[in-house]
């Protein structure tokens, strides 16, 4: 998609444009767009793995069932280890988040695809949902005691108000870092891939560009999984503040 006409023109950000799936026109809130398509593909992929893959309910699992069980066990352990025993109740929510982020990231690596998690709108919605959910859950479960999290009782009394301010700021920055981290990683990686893809059309550097693309693609694969993991484990850490006994 790079060299059109005379000059080398690379549009690494064009891949992120939201456009209607059918025809041209304005994007209304209900318009089926490429975002819609890839979100639904993520849903279908998750359904294929978690529902169709486990349809035989075998005691000795098939390959797909093994993978589904592996993910189940992995996230279940994570929730139990990080958020504590009380956090296991919220395991389905964490599982939903993890599977969505993982599959959206991985589907985004298919050439010509659209990476839904590279959009701040998507990740900010996820992060805000986690933030609001955890805050409301903490207030509901602990009442005013939840606010004790900001009052560091182990620090000297004189320092506590200052620490409280810092803790409060860091608490409210959480959804920002939570969402920007994911969107930024995905966007940067895909933009770099696109830039190299543009260079690949220049005969002189194309071997280097293709080699670099291969390497970055492998890196992006890793980043996709790691970012899904990071997003999920941070969710668990935040969940622990709401349901756990101790605070960090």
């Amino acid at each position: 998609m790079a060299a059109e006409g005379g000059g080398l023109q690379i549009h690494p950000m064009d891949q992120f444009i939201v456009k209607p799936l059918f025809g041209e026109g304005a994007v209304h809130w209900y318009t089926p767009t490429n975002v819609t398509l890839w979100l639904m593909l993520a849903v279908v992929a998750i359904g294929l793995l978690m529902v169709v893959g486990t349809r035989r309910r075998a005691v000795v699992p098939s390959r797909s069932q093994s993978v589904a069980e592996l993910i189940y066990g992995f996230i279940h352990n994570m929730v139990e280890d990080v958020a504590g025993h009380d956090g296991v109740k919220y395991f389905p929510y964490v599982m939903t988040l993890f599977l969505f982020v993982l599959f959206a990231n991985l589907l985004g690596l298919i050439p010509m695809s659209f990476t839904t998690t590279s959009h701040v709108a998507v990740t900010a919605t996820l992060a805000l949902a986690v933030f609001l959910g955890v805050t409301l859950l903490g207030l509901a479960r602990k009442g005013v005691g939840f606010l004790a999290m900001f009052w560091v009782s182990s620090a000297p009394l004189a320092l506590r108000p200052i620490l409280a301010v810092i803790e409060l700021i860091s608490y409210f920055v959480r959804p920002v870092s939570h969402s920007i981290r994911l969107a930024g990683n995905l966007m940067a990686g895909h933009a770099v891939l696109k830039v190299f893809a543009g260079f690949a059309s220049v005969a002189l550097v194309s071997p280097v560009a293709i080699g670099a693309m291969t390497a970055i693609y492998a890196l992006e694969l890793l980043v996709s999984v790691i970012q899904a993991y990071v997003f999920t484990i941070l969710t668990c850490v935040y969940l622990k503040d709401a349901v756990g006994d101790a605070h960090h």
Partner: peptide, 29 residues
């Protein structure tokens, strides 16, 4: 648009998981 469809997708995934996948895998395990 993105938020609307994201919510739709998340609800779909959540329902898929809680109605079918998670109880099934839990039972199998």
């Amino acid at each position: 648009n993105q938020i609307f469809w994201l919510v739709v997708a998340l609800v779909a995934i959540y329902l898929l998981l809680t109605r079918i996948a998670l109880p099934r895998i839990g039972a199998v395990l």
